[in-house]
Nucleic acid binder design. Sequence first.
DNA 1: AGAATTCATCTTGACGTCAAGATAATGGAT
DNA 2: ATCCATTATCTTGACGTCAAGATGAATTCT
Lengths: 162, 162
Amino acid sequence: MDEDHVDRILAQWRRERPDIDVEPMGVLGRLARLSTYLGREIEKTFLELGLSSASFDVLAALRRSGRPYRLSPGDLLATTMITSGTMTNRIDQLEKAGLVERLSNPEDRRSVLIALKPEGLDLVERAVTAHVANQHRLTALLEPDEQSALDAILRKYLTAFE
Amino acid sequence: MDEDHVDRILAQWRRERPDIDVEPMGVLGRLARLSTYLGREIEKTFLELGLSSASFDVLAALRRSGRPYRLSPGDLLATTMITSGTMTNRIDQLEKAGLVERLSNPEDRRSVLIALKPEGLDLVERAVTAHVANQHRLTALLEPDEQSALDAILRKYLTAFE
DNA sequence: AGAATTCATCTTGACGTCAAGATAATGGAT
DNA sequence: ATCCATTATCTTGACGTCAAGATGAATTCT
C-alpha cells in the first residue's frame, strides 16, 4: 500500500490537527483528482477533432436523440448539468462553426429547435468513435471486476443527488 | 436496479449506434457527474465563510504545512493541479482579502514566500472544521464498507496518473 | 568575467461557466 | 377581455482557469 499524493496531505493534517477525522477527505480528494485527470484525457481527444467536451456534449445529445436530430435548448439543458446561459453560449459557438442551426418552431414562438447540420452529424460520428475508443483505453486501467465494482458504487452514490 | 440518468443516455446510444460498446461511458459518466455534484456541495460550505474551494486549497496547504505557515508559490503549486498563472491569481486575491502576505526571501531574490496572516489562520481553522464536517456528511451517503471499497479502487486508478 | 541556460514567478488574452435578471410568448384565472 | 403567473430563451457581468510567453534572478559553462 504505497503512499500517494492524497496520503501525504492526510498525514500533514493528522500531524497538525489530530482532532479531525480525515478519512472522508481521502475518498473525496481522490475522487476529485481522478475526475480532473480523466477529464483532461478526454478533452485531449476532442481537441484533435477541433472540439471540446462542452461542444461534444451538445452534438452528442442531438445525435443520440435520433432522427431528425433536433432538440430544443430546454431539452438539451435537461441532458447536461449546466445553466441556460451556458447552453446559449454553447449553441452560439456550434452555430458559428456551422455544425448546428437554430430553426424557429412554428407551433410555439417562444421556443427554438437546434438541428444538427450535415457537417455536425459527420463530425459527431467521427468524434464519438474516437471518444469511445479513448474511454475504453481509460477504463482498461482497471480490471473488469474493479470497473464493475466502481460502477455499482458510483451508481448508488449518484442516487443521493439525482 | 433502477434506471438513472446515465442509463438513459446509454440506452439512447445502444439504439442509435448498436456498434459501439458503451460500458466505459457508463462508469466515466457517473464519475464525472458525481464529482460535479460533490464539488458543488463542497463549494457551498466555503461560500458561507466567504471562501471558495480555490482559496481554501491555498490556505489549507499553508495551514497543514505547519508553523510558521509559509510556503513558496512553487511549493503551493506542487500541492494543487493548477498552472502557475492560476496560482498567482489565487494568491493575489488572498492577499487582497488580507488573509496572506507576500514576503521576499532574502536568500533567493527570485522567490517569494506566501505567509498566512493571523486573519487567514483564524479563517482557515474555522473553514477546515466546517469542511470536514461537510465531507463527513457527504461520505455518510455510502455505507462504511462501500466507502473503503471506493477508496481502494480510486487509489489504484490514480496510480495510473500520478 | 561574460554568455547562455535554467528557474521562479507573473502577465496577458482567451475561454467556459455561473447567477441574476431581461425579454418575449403562452396559458390560465377571473 | 384582461391580467398574471409561467415558460423558454437569451443577455450581462463576473470569476476561475489555462496556454503561452515575459520578466528578473541565479547558475553553469567556457
